[in-house]
């Protein structure tokens, strides 16, 4: 960990200007990921721009179109327990609460959650090769211990997965990310925010240096009647997903009128596929229907030595979670499987 300068930003422009001006500047929000990366010598910011005092971005507000705006600096905990989120976007609330620990969620911010780095073991160890950390150095995960790695959308450069739970729900809900950058403000649909590794695995998303996430907009429809988030992992809490599923349905007497389906823990970004959702629409909400959607979304899945199980596990999880979405009230805390 290196020495650095510290600056407290007063507003979004102040913050973006400060970071854009220097290659070695970084924002710090909750610090729950950044400080670890720093202590492991994976990042070396010389200027730290503290955005925790950007008061305009610390609120959750209703939008005129009936949606909801989540300030980038609202904590994950405050978001999950916000009455409007709980009432209108319970899928998001569940997904957030399935992640990390209460202490971390109390610090972690919504903006930071989108930008957390992968948990790939090889990425976190600066003494071994990693294409994501050092493009061109190689990927020991492919031949190594790849239990937690990708089965979808990986490249021959990188098989890391994006670890967020919150983002799986945001992808399913069709959120929009609002960004303030050097060239003004812009909005990015959630599914276009993160990118696949391709031949530039070091780049996680479509932001530019100095871009500040100011907020995340949720559309009007929150699927509050029929939704479920299921997270499968190596212990019952405080572990990243091996596979997670966000399912949101709009039902009409047992028939699916609209559907959202997104997977976490399987790819370099939250994995949502419209073709799989189309399979669901118009059909009876039952195991056979969810199995059909699973076939489509997993059609191109490819496993490695230690994570091959994820393909079958994801298939079963999609089916179970579809059924769980029919009875959201029976769901258990921590996104555990229920009947």
């Amino acid at each position: 960990m290196n020495n650095f300068e510290y600056k407290q930003a007063t507003d979004a422009i102040d913050a973006t200007d400060a970071v854009a001006a220097s290659e070695d500047a970084m924002f710090i929000a909750g610090g729950t990921n950044l400080v670890d990366l720093w202590k492991y010598n994976l990042v070396h910011p010389k200027l730290l721009v503290d955005i925790n005092h950007l008061h305009n971005h610390k609120h959750i507000t209703e939008l005129e179109n009936g949606g909801l705006r989540l300030g980038a600096l609202v904590t994950n905990a405050d978001t999950a327990y916000h009455p409007l989120v709980e009432e209108r976007y319970p899928l998001l609330s569940k997904a957030i609460l399935a992640g990390a620990s209460p202490q971390i969620r109390n610090m972690a911010t919504n903006g930071g959650n989108l930008l957390q780095r992968t948990r790939c073991y090889y990425f976190y160890d600066p003494d071994v090769p990693c294409n994501k950390r050092e493009p061109g150095s190689g990927c020991p995960a492919m031949e190594g211990y790849n239990r937690i790695h990708a089965i979808l959308g990986a490249s021959d450069q990188c098989i890391a997965v994006f670890p967020s739970d919150m983002c799986v729900a945001l992808a399913a809900l069709g959120a929009v990310v609002n960004v303030s950058g050097n060239n003004g403000e812009r909005s990015i649909p959630f599914t276009d925010f993160h990118r696949l590794p391709g031949d530039a695995p070091d780049i996680d998303n479509h932001l530019h240096h100095g871009d500040l996430i100011t907020s995340i907009d949720l559309p009007v429809r929150g699927f509050a009647q029929n939704y479920s988030y299921l997270k499968l992992r190596d212990r019952h809490s405080y572990a990243f997903a091996l596979v997670s599923v966000a399912t949101a349905l709009e039902l009409d007497g047992g028939i699916i009128r609209d559907a959202r389906l997104a997977l976490g823990g399987v790819a370099h970004k939250p994995w949502r596929m419209h073709e799989a959702e189309s399979v669901l629409i118009g059909r009876t909400a039952d195991e056979a229907t969810f199995a059909a959607a699973a076939e489509v979304i997993l059609a191109d899945a490819k496993g490695f030595k230690y994570n091959n199980f994820k393909i079958e596990l994801a298939r079963r999880a999609i089916i179970r979670n579809g059924m769980m979405a029919l009875n959201p009230e029976t769901q258990l805390p921590g996104a555990q499987p229920s009947a």
């Binding site: 948990r119 073991y121 090889y122 976190y124 160890d125 003494d127 071994v128 020991p140 031949e143 190594g144 211990y145 190596d234 212990r235 019952h236 809490s237 405080y238 572990a239 921590g334």
Partner: peptide, 25 residues
Amino acid sequence: TILDEKLGKYMNQNLAEYHIPVHAD
């Protein structure tokens, strides 16, 4: 403790990835 035999080293050298039970377990 996850050992990568090609690298000859342990790969999960922290308590986030070295799993022990939490209350929920």
